[in-house]
Design a binder for these strands. Structure first.
Lengths: 137, 137
DNA sequence: CTTTATGCAAAGGATTTGCAGATTA
DNA sequence: TAATCTGCAAATCCTTTGCATAAAG
């Protein structure tokens, strides 16, 4: 996804394109891993000295509600990344060091044969954590 | 795991066995699902009117550090459940309504054939969410 | 010029910490 | 008795909200 597409989508919803939102969109487009609100804030306040935390939260929520970014719960708290539109259904490799993610299409649900009596599966979570090439020691 | 085992383990570590800790151990042994700190607090304060939140947090941390309970991040926040010692490696069905969990032995890692170039898998997360027999509508 | 976004300050919720008194071993 | 635990109060941290001003369309 490109910065332009994100801004156009926001514009079409009647939202205003501010400098902060441009910077935020650019940040997510250029960063393939997860970002915590604090990391977003730190990045943004470099270019916007008066940047406030609530603007970060507000805009993260806007992007999340528009399905432009997705939310993920880590042990350390919430993080966000650009939503994957690439494949239909997929899962992720996530680097424990740099948190960059690589999608893959294999889905374990294709191999699950039996579920407990009377249990109705609705959704599932499958992620593989490890170290990517550059972060391996 | 039985209440006695938990208390003995705590005792062996030089920790004191208080009424609150007995109640907490019993709660987790008798509840097969996840519990949020607030739920723990509510349960405990029924028997201990003066119960305080910090005691709940302190003891949850103690049990977690001793690997007696495990921590899991839900969208709504942290929750805890008794650590599964039953099988070696396993995953869970988790009911979205009552949050009770059922372990199963199938592991998707047995079926994952290729990982991205240079990626070293370390751990993984796989859970199936849905509705159990009694919570299905 | 009308509407929406921002920054500020303040509020809210969850979790942690310091301390004196209560409780365990 | 000596140690740890508890409840209280206060402190933090993270996130949200209300409001006046600034910026976008």
């Amino acid at each position: 996804m490109k910065v332009e597409e994100i801004l156009t989508a926001m514009s079409n919803k009647g939202l205003r394109i501010t400098e902060q939102r441009k910077t935020l969109a650019k940040l997510f487009v250029e960063h393939s891993g997860y970002l915590a609100p604090k990391e977003v804030y730190e990045h943004m306040s470099k270019m916007y000295p008066g940047m406030s935390f609530d603007t970060v939260y507000r805009n993260l929520r806007v992007l999340h509600e528009m399905d432009i970014i997705e939310q993920f719960m880590f042990e350390e708290g919430v993080k966000f990344k650009l939503h994957c539109h690439a494949h239909d259904h997929h899962h992720h490799f996530i680097c424990l060091e740099c948190e960059n993610t690589v999608p893959f299409e294999f889905c374990p649900m294709d191999y699950v044969k039996t579920v407990p009596d009377g249990f109705t599966p609705v959704k599932h979570k499958f992620d593989i954590y490890g170290y990517c090439d550059s972060c391996r020691h």
